[in-house]
Design a protein around this nucleic acid. Structure first.
Lengths: 223, 223
DNA sequence: TTCATTTTTAATCATTTGATTAAAAAACTT
DNA sequence: AAGTTTTTTAATCAAATGATTAAAAATGAA
């Protein structure tokens, strides 16, 4: 029997004619709650009920606005990625800075940024793994111009003989590894080295200076 | 009504009098399946049914042998940790090797090891975060002697004026960061740098030589 | 106000999932 | 072989969980 598909009321089709509620909208509340929980615990370990409670709304509202847990997650993930990339792109595209200055800016920016969003890196590393999807594809597209720019700079610096020719792969692995990895491995590192929370922060402050120095040392070390 | 608590038959209390089944026991099959899935997808995203299927046994058997998903996970996790640590400890405790040689051995050992267990590092970084539990405590205890040994070596090398005095925190963060991080961030790195699977392996082979060189350069760079 | 539309809720559904049970099958002892 | 214990299974349970529904409340337009 042809069950006339009950057309669901389209959610959140804002009447273009009138301005938004302006204040902290319900949709935004849900997004923020979802971001907080998804980022901290990952997709599978996060319950939609927890998100609803964190947002202070009814569970049905979540589905009303976002249709499904997956959809909501995709949005949060994309948002997280963009934020993560933005940190680097600003410094990277600053044409007035020298290569060394750029590195220093990137390192500082990332350390500051992750200090305020400590769960982000691991979230991204996790979710990028299980997702060969369009999401990741989209991210790649957004990163492309940045990559091109950095590669060019690397090549120029290499040609001027200032530094060793180093493959971009190694360069980026080193830069991000030295900067981001301590945050990702923080619980492990603190256990193994017996470092307190306060000390950890101090060490990361130190690294703002040290990592650029080390990167430089690496690129001037003789093969 | 006092329902006389149905005493559950104690699982897997092997009669000590007779040797084990010897071949690949059911218990072992379950362990291996659980390890594979837990390590790849984490605790929350892994279903006990999937483990049972992967092991080719009935779901009830899993609970018969291990009582609960949590218990099984704890066992797998401890096992994974030990394996991860073992890689380093062998190289580290080799008294015949010089400091530089040790570093080279550690880097090579880790790169080889993780190449064959690519999901392990991220698993550990994930599970150590949400687990301030006795599990992590136990790990710490097992790592302690290694840490002490490495610290002593670092201090000695520093006193001999061969290298800059470098805090153990920075040293370990650098060593592991440069060695392990590329694997953890592999999908991201490959996307950003446009590197193929084959090329990635080649790069990691290169790093067996390069990372020790870089570590050396870092420790000889002037403050 | 009245009416239409949007937003929110309580209640419920359907499926998934960890766990248990009772009984069958297999292994071992005598 | 008979009896005992261990191992394995099919069936089922109970709780958790993502999603939907129908109706109420709020909002804005006329």
């Amino acid at each position: 029997m042809a069950k006339a598909a009950r057309k669901k009321r389209p959610p959140t089709k804002k009447k273009a004619s009138r301005p938004l509620p302006a204040d902290i909208s319900t949709e935004e509340k849900i997004m923020q709650a979802a971001k907080k929980l998804f980022t901290k615990k990952g997709f599978a370990a996060t319950r939609t009920r927890d998100i609803a409670e964190e947002a202070g709304i009814n569970l049905a509202l979540l589905n009303y606005y976002f249709r499904s847990k997956e959809k909501l997650f995709d949005i949060v993930m994309l948002d997280n990625f963009r934020q993560f990339i933005k940190g680097v792109s600003v410094s990277l595209l600053d044409e007035t800075a020298s290569f060394d200055e750029k590195i220093k800016k990137i390192v500082t920016a990332y350390i500051d940024f992750i200090t305020h969003h400590p769960d982000l890196p691991l979230f991204i590393l996790n979710e990028i793994r299980g997702n060969p999807s369009r999401l990741v594809q989209q991210i790649s597209a957004e990163v492309a111009p940045l990559r091109a720019h950095m590669f060019r700079q690397l090549q120029e610096a290499g040609k001027q003989g200032k530094i060793n020719p180093i493959d971009p792969f190694h360069f980026i692995a080193n830069l991000i590894g030295l900067t981001v990895f301590p945050f990702v491995a923080r619980p492990l590192l603190q256990r193994v080295t017996g470092v307190s929370d306060q000390q950890f922060q101090a060490f990361m402050e130190e690294r703002k200076e040290l990592v650029p120095l080390w990167i430089s040392a690496i690129m001037h070390s003789k093969k």
